[in-house]
Amino acid sequence: MADGVTGPGRSRPQTVERAFAGGWTTFAAIMLLIGGILAVLEGIAAILNDDLVVVTRSYTFSWSTTGWGWIHLILGVVLVLAGTALFSGAVWARVVGVIVAGLGMIANFVWLPHYPFWATVLIVIDAFVIWALCAGTTKELT
């Protein structure tokens, strides 16, 4: 029985090698952590110092700067948690990462008139995260 066959029609159980996270998943996790930390800092800045953020008049999504700060602070914490979960390599963490990165893109698009540089940087980071999570190989997913 050197070939591992244990009887007629039976073969040795296959082992699935599973790394804690593949290359693109690790990249996405790190980018989510960076984007989440930046969103937390953006939220804290908007909450503590309303004068730091430019408020545009006659903007469709005109909310209070403090309200936006809380949205970014909470979203940033969720982004950091999703990035941390991605290091496990679990498929559910990839799905959550795509959803949370998409929500981050939407929030930062609406935030563009208030802080264009930070919002643009975070939109790009979230786009890279979504791409990296969706471009993962099937080996990473098994």
Results as ranks from 00 to 15, higher is better:
L38F: 11
G97W: 02
A28H: 00
G22E: 03
L86K: 09
S62C: 05
S88G: 12
V95E: 03
N49K: 09
A39G: 07
L73C: 08
L79H: 07
G67Y: 14
G76F: 04
G67F: 15
A46C: 10
S88R: 11
V91N: 09
A85L: 13
A29C: 08
G76I: 08
L32P: 09
I74V: 13
L41Q: 07
T65W: 11
M31S: 15
L33N: 03
N49H: 12
V55D: 08
V53Y: 01
W92N: 03
G22Y: 12
E17N: 15
E17K: 15
L75G: 05
T26N: 12
A82Q: 02
L38Y: 09
L48I: 08
G83H: 00
M31P: 02
R94L: 05
A45V: 12
G43D: 01
A101W: 03
R94C: 03
L38T: 11
I99K: 00
S88P: 06
I99V: 15
L32G: 05
I30A: 13
A29N: 08
T15M: 13
G104M: 02
T84L: 15
R57F: 06
A90Y: 07
T25N: 08
T84D: 03
Y59K: 12
G43I: 02
S88F: 03
A46V: 11
A93C: 04
I34G: 09
T60F: 13
V95N: 05
A90P: 00
I74K: 06
G23L: 10
V40W: 01
G35T: 10
T26Y: 10
L81P: 02
I99Y: 02
A39D: 07
V95S: 04
A46S: 14
V16W: 10
F27L: 14
S58A: 14
L73V: 13
G97Q: 01
I30Y: 07
G89K: 01
V16C: 05
N49W: 07
I37W: 06
I44E: 13
I74T: 11
T60N: 10
I34F: 13
G102W: 11
V96K: 00
G22M: 12
V77Y: 00
G22T: 04
A82Y: 01
A29V: 11
S64N: 11
S88L: 02
D50F: 10
V40E: 01
V95W: 08
D51A: 15
W70L: 08
V53F: 03
S58D: 12
T65V: 15
F61M: 13
F20A: 13
L75K: 01
L52S: 07
R18I: 05
I34H: 07
S58P: 01
S88T: 15
